[in-house]
Design a binder for these strands. Structure first.
Length: 714
DNA sequence: GAGTTTGAAACT
DNA sequence: CAGTTTCAAACTC
């Protein structure tokens, strides 16, 4: 491209903000402060509420690491100067779910800073001995009652061996990531959390500061109440470096203390992105380091805790100590930082390919699929994992390829839509610079990664500011722009031929489609693509959506006009069914494979789930992943918000059915009945229901204000 | 792989 | 708010 514009694009970006993009952004109208509505996410034993925006933003962060191993043209750019210390927690041995942990989470969404004053972390004293990893995201000060309660958290026992391991911070995410159906599962993964930490590495310092950049505030950390007061917390937050040192010391002496300090940003990031990015990284590192660390070869599938503990060995800075990267819980951000700060070279992170987002699923795979050895942990897009069309294994492999391949960007594989999973999603933008909703990556709230075939991509960590500002601008225009396009409840998942409209909570496209030629029978139609029926909100013409026509009521209740269309619909359905059925079958298989209990139940195959990108901020869950996966799967382009909210939902094995409903509840709440995308809470949203269903381990959506608030938040 | 179609997103 | 343009995915060949 030799156009002036192109030249501009090629011009150095970021640092100076001299680039056109920055100028452009600067000219953007001020973004109005987002209103944060408490959004409760329940997962597993962990429940918290936070504004959706938080998640959205986190999604970008999720691929943060990619930033550091960006596309070739970005290679020149490196660490974002803005990176600051973010809390990193150390997790070690045990994952202890049943422990209630409560803390307040604020939305980072816009300023990504914590407000210490508001930050609340409540840890039962009893849990104190156990290091609880709580990750707190920078929260917007204005957010109210963003409180999340971890009922079950990972209990980690710091190893004396690695007192100052910087990796600790990475793990906190695991809390979010891991969802166990049963205590046994949790035990199984205890080892995963155990990892050697690179001593000197101060993860805190490593973490990108992007989140805090906006307001210039320092990272604020959540501290567990158990160990300290909020004030104390604030004080420490003010001085990240101090915290770091303290952390190190604490690690040696008092795990609890340490963790408190570090809960911090990392935690919040982890919450935001619960993805197994780390795992992916682990894989890479492992690959690279395998030569030296053959012993670490323990495969993921090895459920043996012992093996898992050694899942990945990585060297950091020639540090002989093996650094075990837990397959779960380490997220890309941390890796990115580590890379930059800890002396970890790009080489480790970038093998010719950017780190792809890894999805939480990996953890699941670990437990369930023997096939995927190291790869099991490999990046798996959340959606993929759920993806019916793909075996659970499949996703991992895709990512695997990414990891192993040094090949240049691959063009989007049409034949492999599944490749577009949360972790593996890729776009092909040419003119939008990946800063518009045209870009699926951007729209999904994630950074573009190497697999993308985009050109002049600004949707990268190195352009974080640009991305965030652009995003804000878009949100200012349409607060729901980054919200999931399809809001669906579990029950809404339509089976072929079913009328989605039958159920009040049925899934619907946020804004409805506007199809004119596709008859809503092709993926051009977002409703169809999302596997949902058209609704009143749709302005489509000649709707034949197999999932439910705009006049959907007809499907069930034979209305006069329906009869006329019935024939057409039947035909259309048949056409669709070929595909759908196949998809469904695939889903079933995969689902069963990955999560026999949960998936089989909760996961209803969505025809397009594979293609529809899941929220990138997927939470990795072990057995729970299936659950999440299923829920996320249901979302067409689930926003991180969405996916996360679901992820946080915990369901006992015996309550799977409830899970679905619960799971759906948020969705149901989101269901839009109005064209403008305003969300109206539905009866299903009733928090009480969800909470009531949960047993001890489960969490409760405490304050999920009805979803409607989502609209206002931004 | 190139070209076309389609409809969302963006723009006016 | 409506009309138009731009854009990239979906689709076709």
């Amino acid at each position: 491209m030799d156009t002036p514009e192109r030249n501009q694009m090629n011009a150095p970006l970021n640092p100076n903000q001299d680039s056109p993009v920055f100028n452009f952004i600067n000219t953007l109208s001020p973004i109005k402060p987002a209103k944060h509505v408490p959004f409760t996410h329940t997962f597993n034993s962990l429940t918290f509420s936070s504004p959706p925006s938080l998640f959205t933003e986190s999604r970008f962060l999720k691929r943060h690491i990619s930033l550091h191993t960006p596309k070739p043209h970005d290679s020149s750019q490196h660490v974002n100067p803005n990176y600051s210390n973010q809390g990193i927690r150390v997790a070690d041995d045990a994952i202890h779910l049943p422990q209630p942990l409560k803390y307040n989470c604020r939305s980072p969404a816009y300023d990504s800073t914590f407000s210490a004053d508001n930050t609340l972390l409540e840890l039962p004293r009893e849990a104190a001995p156990d290091v609880t990893y709580v990750q707190e995201e920078a929260c917007k000060t204005d957010s109210v009652h963003n409180e999340f309660i971890l009922q079950g958290t990972c209990r980690i026992q710091p190893k004396s061996e690695f007192p100052d391991c910087g990796w600790d911070g990475l793990i906190p995410d695991t809390t979010d990531l891991l969802i166990f159906n049963s205590p046994n599962e949790a035990r199984a993964f205890n080892g995963l959390f155990q990892k050697p930490l690179d001593s000197s590495a101060d993860l805190m310092s490593l973490l990108p500061q992007s989140s805090i950049i906006n307001n210039g505030h320092n990272v604020q950390f959540l501290h567990s109440i158990a160990s300290r007061s909020e004030h104390e917390i604030q004080d420490q937050h003010s001085d990240p470096s101090a915290v770091t040192e303290t952390d190190h010391a604490a690690m040696n002496s008092n795990p609890n203390e340490k963790t408190d300090e570090e809960l911090v940003s990392v935690m919040h990031r982890g919450l935001r992105r619960r993805c197994l990015d780390f795992e992916m990284a682990s894989v890479r590192w492992k690959n690279s380091d395998d030569n030296s660390n053959t012993g670490s070869s323990s495969t993921l599938h090895g459920r043996n805790v012992t093996d898992e503990n050694q899942l990945v060995h990585t060297k950091h800075n020639s540090d002989s100590r093996k650094c075990i990267l837990p397959g779960i819980g380490l997220h890309l951000n941390a890796l990115a930082t580590l890379k930059d700060h800890n002396g970890i070279k790009n080489e480790k992170l970038s093998y010719g390919r950017k780190l792809s987002l890894i999805c939480s699923t990996s953890s699941l795979k670990i437990s369930t699929s023997q096939e995927h050895h190291h790869l099991a942990l490999g990046a798996v897009s959340s959606e993929r994992e759920i993806d019916p069309s793909n075996n659970s294994v499949q996703p991992a492999e895709d990512c695997r390829e990414d990891l192993n391949q040094n090949s240049p960007k691959r063009k989007r594989r049409k034949s492999d839509p599944a490749g577009e999973t949360e972790g593996c999603k890729r776009c092909n933008c040419k003119k939008s610079k990946c800063l518009k909703l045209y870009c699926e990556c951007f729209a999904a709230g994630v950074y573009c990664i190497e697999p993308c075939s985009c050109q002049d991509c600004f949707n990268q960590a190195i352009h974080e500011d640009t991305v965030l500002q652009t995003r804000k601008q878009i949100e200012s225009r349409n607060p729901l722009a980054f919200a999931p396009k399809v809001i669906r409840s579990s029950e809404s998942v339509p089976e072929v031929g079913d009328d989605p409209n039958k159920t009040p909570a049925s899934a619907r496209h946020k804004r409805g489609c506007n199809c004119k030629k596709s008859s809503c029978l092709k993926k051009y139609c977002e409703c169809f693509q999302g596997g949902v029926g058209c609704s009143i909100s749709c302005r489509c013409e000649g709707c034949k959506n197999a999932f439910g026509r705009k006049d959907g009521s007809a499907l069930v209740e034979a209305e006069p006009e329906e009869e006329t269309e019935a024939g057409e619909r039947g035909v259309a359905d048949k056409d669709l069914q070929k595909t759908e059925i196949q998809n469904i079958e695939d889903h079933s298989d995969s689902a069963l494979v990955s999560t026999p209990s949960l998936i089989s139940r909760s996961l209803l195959p969505l025809p397009f789930s594979s293609k529809r990108k899941p929220p990138r901020s997927f939470v990795a869950t072990i057995s729970g992943s299936a659950l999440f996966a299923s829920s996320s799967q249901k979302l067409e382009k689930p926003s991180s918000l969405w996916s996360q909210s679901k992820h946080f939902q915990t369901v006992p094995d015996d309550e799977i059915p409830d899970v679905l409903s619960i799971d759906s509840s948020p969705v149901a709440c989101i269901k839009t009945s109005s064209p403008n995308g305003k969300r109206i809470s539905s009866p299903n949203c009733d928090l009480g229901q969800s909470s009531s269903r949960r047993g001890g381990r489960k969490l409760i959506l405490q304050s999920i204000p009805s979803f409607p608030s989502l609209t206002n938040q931004q």
